[in-house]
Amino acid sequence: MTNRLRVLRAERAWSQQDLAERLQVSRQSVNAIETGKYDPSLPLAFRISALFDLPIEAIFSPEANAAVANG
């Protein structure tokens, strides 16, 4: 998967730590998702979607990347 998390975060001038606190996850998680190293679970994807008030498909798209969780 690819995602627009970094762009959406930058638009709001949030640091990775700011976003992590809003999502109640670690900063490492935010970094791993942004860099495509980790694809979030569906519950976390819904939390991200709710936080940015956007549908999931406006944030994530199913193009392949090299996420750690997939191999």
């Binding site: 109640q24 996850v25 670690s26 998680s29 980790y38 979030p40 750690v68 969780a69």
Partner: peptide
Amino acid sequence: EPDEFIRM
């Protein structure tokens, strides 16, 4: 561990 990425 509550953080799914760290848990992984």
